[in-house]
Write a protein that binds this DNA or RNA. Structure first.
Lengths: 201, 201
DNA sequence: CGCCGGAGGTGACACTTGTCACCCCGGCGA
DNA sequence: TCGCCGGGGTGACAAGTGTCACCTCCGGCG
């Protein structure tokens, strides 16, 4: 019997997934969470074989949870199920020792298959993802550039961004200009789009 | 027996929903679609009692489909299930004669309830949504402002936006400035954020 | 010790945006 | 007919942004 905790912020999807996976004879859903912090607590308490989690959730992301579990040597293996096919997410997931990465585009049956594969010590990466990761390359941004870009995305001016991250406005301009150049965009807005699309923000 | 077509672009969610609703004794899922155009074709062909649809899908949105059905006097009633609690979406849905509007945050059971209510001629609006629509007010943007904002969001310059929508760059500046003022933002980026958050884009 | 490299900063210049006042012109109702 | 919108446009100015060359500081490291 494979014991499973599921974390997913959309209650409807969580409920549906839990119910369907519960029908599988060899799977048992022992816990559910609707945010990252609850998921982490639940995994620590229940020590399931597998944590099946979304990435985008209130509080900790699924990747944050995976990283936390990895760093404390938890025996629970993590499978990520997410909406977004973004190369950067996959890269970060791999770094957090995530064993499975599926898209919500996939049929439900695939989830059960992936859970079994990962429980058996194998990996399960959606093929579309694997291909995309190949030709996407690594995140070219530095931490500072990422910070600046995240704020620029919200419409803040150089001056305001500078105040928030404790740099001078001129440096912020330089960073954003540099980021746009790296990402092949003409300005901060385009740079933000590209970075977000690739899962680099 | 209530006959149902479900449209939803995430195959996993579509499958889960269809399976679970199929278990309800009084509901029958007669068709599934993963994009708006397919959903419209399917509804025309099968004439179900209810179309349960997401908003954001490739091709036509769920609201577009609802509008098309309403304009051709279809007897199929539309229930929307979506991720986003955006007042503008709800307003447009109402204008398209949509009878139910739920969030994926809600538990699965609510969907069956809403489908039954709508099939019986009643309405079903998620309470959180109803409240939000109340204090959100109407979309303050003109069509031109919306067009310009949509392009500005992607990082295009005034000149490029002007070329695409056939106006002069100066006018585009005026529109974006006006839009930002209406939305209480300091610049086009902030204006884009606010508009998107409210479902006005 | 001296040098290097990277993080951060400055200043200058061109270009883009934001703001505002004002113009043109094709309806449309009085 | 007049007048008065309202959509679209112009021009000017201030502010913000993109680009680039060059500077400083500081922590390694040969």
């Amino acid at each position: 019997m494979i014991r499973l905790v599921i974390a997913e912020d959309q209650a409807m999807v969580l409920g549906a997934l839990a119910t369907l996976l519960g029908f599988e004879p060899d799977l048992e859903v022992v816990g559910r969470a609707t945010d990252g912090d609850a998921a982490l607590a639940l995994v620590r308490e229940l020590r399931p074989d597998i944590l099946l989690t979304d990435i985008e959730m209130p509080g900790m992301t699924g990747i944050d949870v995976a990283r936390a579990l990895a760093s404390e040597g938890s025996s629970t293996r993590v499978v990520i199920v997410t909406t977004f096919a973004r190369a950067g997410y996959l890269a970060r997931a791999r770094a957090a020792d995530v064993r499975g990465y599926l898209l919500k585009d996939a049929p439900v049956e695939e989830v059960a298959g992936a859970v079994r594969a990962v429980a058996a010590g194998r990996r399960a990466i959606a093929p579309a993802l694997a291909a995309m990761a190949w030709d996407a390359g690594a995140d070219p941004l530095t931490d500072r550039e990422r910070d600046a870009l995240r704020l620029a995305e919200q419409g803040l001016s150089n001056k305001e961004i500078a105040r928030r991250i404790g740099l001078s406005p001129g440096t912020v301009r330089n960073y954003l200009s540099e980021a746009a150049a790296k990402l092949g965009a003409g300005n901060r807005v385009g740079a933000g789009r590209v970075a977000r699309l690739n899962g680099w923000l």
